[in-house]
């Protein structure tokens, strides 16, 4: 079945943008959208040597020729509630539903952009792989006590600390939503109390001086990069995500050196990602430091600021084979 399936969140602006392009680049495009917590009420999977894969999710027929884009959201099954039940029910869930969900959340289509599993890419994993590919990374420390931190600080002078995973944490009680917000904090030796103390294992990295930061959108070996000049603005100096809405940082097209692109491409292959957004720092000495790659990040601003038409690129990819 040669049509396109888009799995995302219904209020994601980039999904709406890409849909506009899909209906433009492919007249009469056939698109099924699986949005938000998409309920899977019925499932049928068939594999055979002749037909390869044929499946039906609810009333949507698909096969491995179907074009698939995973952007956001998740598939939920009627049986999901069961897994919070007793041990017996939990085991039943793990043996029956879970493997199917894992399979659907993986790479099963010939032409697929990202998959649900990409949500779980591990930061420490990618830093390790980058290091093994001889891509510069800012020195890392993960520790649970202030003595280790003090030693690290004395050799690196300026250190940043940030969460390993999300930039903020959301908690809900019955009545309130509690958000802990701090993206990145620069710390010096003065920020450590005299008395040694312990904390939950936390992530620290050497602070790297920036000439500018680079955000690079990667898809199938192609890099679309943008340089962000955040150093002119005190608010955005440490982390450009501390946005200044009045005077947005200058963002212009950039070209990474071919040698770096080739290493980053290798990194993506090792991480089994066919798309992602890189965060890279360029130092005043023209050295490049890899910070992270976000498999399913924001690309709208890279696309619009640099006139790259990334949404069109994605639309063309997911309507291929039709």
């Amino acid at each position: 079945m040669r049509h396109s399936i888009i799995q995302s969140e219904s209020d994601d602006p980039s999904t709406d943008d890409v849909l506009s392009w899909v209906y433009y680049v492919k007249k009469n495009a056939v698109v099924d959208t699986l949005f938000d917590a998409y309920p899977v009420n019925s499932i049928r999977l068939e594999m055979s040597n002749k037909e390869n894969l044929q499946a039906t999710i609810n009333d949507i027929n698909l096969d491995n020729e179907t074009n698939y884009w995973y952007r956001r959201g998740q598939l939920v099954s009627y049986f999901d509630t069961v897994r919070n039940g007793n041990t017996y029910q939990k085991k039943m869930y793990e043996e029956t539903i879970l493997p199917i969900q894992e399979y659907l959340n993986g790479s099963i289509y010939k032409n697929q952009l990202n998959r649900f599993q990409d949500n779980f890419t591990n930061k420490l994993d990618m830093l390790h792989l980058a290091m093994s590919l001889h891509i510069n990374i800012p020195d890392v420390l993960v520790t649970d006590n202030s003595d280790d931190l003090a030693t690290f600080l004395s050799s690196h002078k300026k250190v940043i600390t940030k969460p390993i995973k999300n930039p903020f944490i959301d908690y809900s009680t019955k009545i309130y939503n509690v958000k802990f917000l701090t993206h990145t904090k620069l710390i010096t030796i003065d920020d450590i109390p005299k008395e040694a103390f312990s904390f939950m294992p936390s992530f620290f990295q050497k602070y790297i001086e920036k000439k500018y930061e680079i955000r690079s959108f990667y898809m199938d070996g192609v890099f679309k990069s943008m340089a962000i000049f955040s150093q002119q603005n005190e608010k955005t100096k440490t982390d450009y995500r501390n946005y200044d809405r009045q005077r947005p940082n200058r963002c212009i097209p950039y070209t990474l050196p071919k040698s770096l692109e080739s290493k980053l491409h290798q990194l993506m292959i090792k991480l089994q990602l066919n798309s992602g957004s890189f965060d890279i720092i360029c130092t005043p000495e023209n050295e490049y430091y890899f910070l992270e790659v976000n498999p399913i990040g924001q690309f709208q601003w890279v696309s619009k600021n640099c006139n790259y038409y990334i949404e069109r690129m994605i639309a063309e990819k997911i309507t291929r084979h039709e």
């Binding site: 709406d16 009545i175 309130y176 509690v178 958000k179 802990f180 701090t182 904390f199 939950m200 992530f203």
Partner: peptide
């Protein structure tokens, strides 16, 4: 402190009431 990561000492805490009745209206496309 042992129950929180190091960065918690710098956290901004924001508290919002969960809107049960009034949800912002959505536009459909």
């Amino acid at each position: 402190p042992k129950e929180y990561p190091f960065i918690s000492r710098f956290w901004d805490v924001e508290i919002d009431e969960i809107q049960t009745s009034v949800t912002e209206s959505y536009i459909d496309f």
